[in-house]
Write a protein that binds this DNA or RNA. Sequence first.
DNA 1: AATGAAATTCAATGAACGTTGAAATAAGTT
DNA 2: AACTTATTTCAACGTTCATTGAATTTCATT
Lengths: 218, 218
Amino acid sequence: MAKRGEKTRQKILDSAEKLFAKRGYHGVTIRQITEDAKVDTALANYHFGSKRNLFDAVLLRRAEELNKVRLEKLEEIEAAAENGVASLEDIIDAFSHPLLDRSERGGPGWKSYFALIAQINNSPEWGGKLMTEYFDPLVRRFIAALKRALPEAREEDIYWSYHFFSGALVLTYAETGRIDNLSDGKVHSSDLDAVQLRMPPFIAAGFRRLCETGGAKN
Amino acid sequence: MAKRGEKTRQKILDSAEKLFAKRGYHGVTIRQITEDAKVDTALANYHFGSKRNLFDAVLLRRAEELNKVRLEKLEEIEAAAENGVASLEDIIDAFSHPLLDRSERGGPGWKSYFALIAQINNSPEWGGKLMTEYFDPLVRRFIAALKRALPEAREEDIYWSYHFFSGALVLTYAETGRIDNLSDGKVHSSDLDAVQLRMPPFIAAGFRRLCETGGAKN
DNA sequence: AATGAAATTCAATGAACGTTGAAATAAGTT
DNA sequence: AACTTATTTCAACGTTCATTGAATTTCATT
């Protein structure tokens, strides 16, 4: 049974997740993490080997569940479609709903996790490499579904459309509060239910405009 | 004449911009910056007071030009429209083109600057506060134009649509190379001309779907 | 050439960094 | 209860951090 130090491990992971999300990898020290977790400083290195390994462990912990549930959702809607080809709106929802739902209702750990992913995603230091490492297979599976939903589309238009979609989604779960300021409180970045309502139609319309009607030329 | 130390100041700003863009505020040291700029370590503090002030100076240097040219472009297209109401596509282009154009053709300094903005934008540490500080007045002006272009829209739909637009744009000039990986080289994140062609139709279609046709309910 | 302010160099500050090895403690196995 | 291994504690390692004060150099103006 590998359970003696498991509680400590999880406490360190929780604190690391929270603090990395707030200030980024370089903005947080091992001492801050272990102090927040109320464990000895040396335990972070004992359990994870190095600060960098701890960072990877934080990312990996929730990535697996996330990839699993998103894939299941995609397969589900494809199975429900009579011809096996899911609708654009359903694909977009299957891609984004598991994320927004966990950020909204999964507890503070999930919220921190997504805030961290949002930072990593837009940084040249981690963006290309880490995101590819953790999420590439799943994204490729979704892009295949998108291609089937838009059989006439040119490949580049699919990729750019996905890119726009991805940017909109990532900024959403970054939850920086910027839109709260801009709208003078009329809209709240934490209202992810409002996003779940609006993202599929918005993004699907963009996809169709770009991928169905000859795209950029019109 | 305030020019004796100006060359040094600019060299420090250039190196700071480059390195902050690569590794973020906390991931860069004053020593790395001054070494890259080939000036003495103490000069960063002499000219800028503190590391944090240097960071702000980097952000401010190009923000002013950026806000100026984007506002001019918006006023230009509004003046050209017969009723003073610019088209959705034109507004979107006026908002994004000055950024993408400078990132593509403005030299490495501009490219670094946008990469830095992309990181800041998605981080809770800086995102809400700094972006608001440097870009709020301009964005509010654009949102006013969007409201005129979509007179029947509900305000929340405008804000959320702008939010999606903003996320797509920011990820674009982050240029993390992720889409290069995903597309196996069929699409390049550095090909901002391809984005300029596709972003206005994609985003405009999303706006219309959300803001014209009753939005989320359909 | 002399003056004085601005700019630069140099050396050093105390604080904080990630990491480590040895000692102490806790828990599972015999 | 004795033994063994995993975990935790404690103190310290050497390095690097942002910042600073004093000395030196540079340069425009006399």
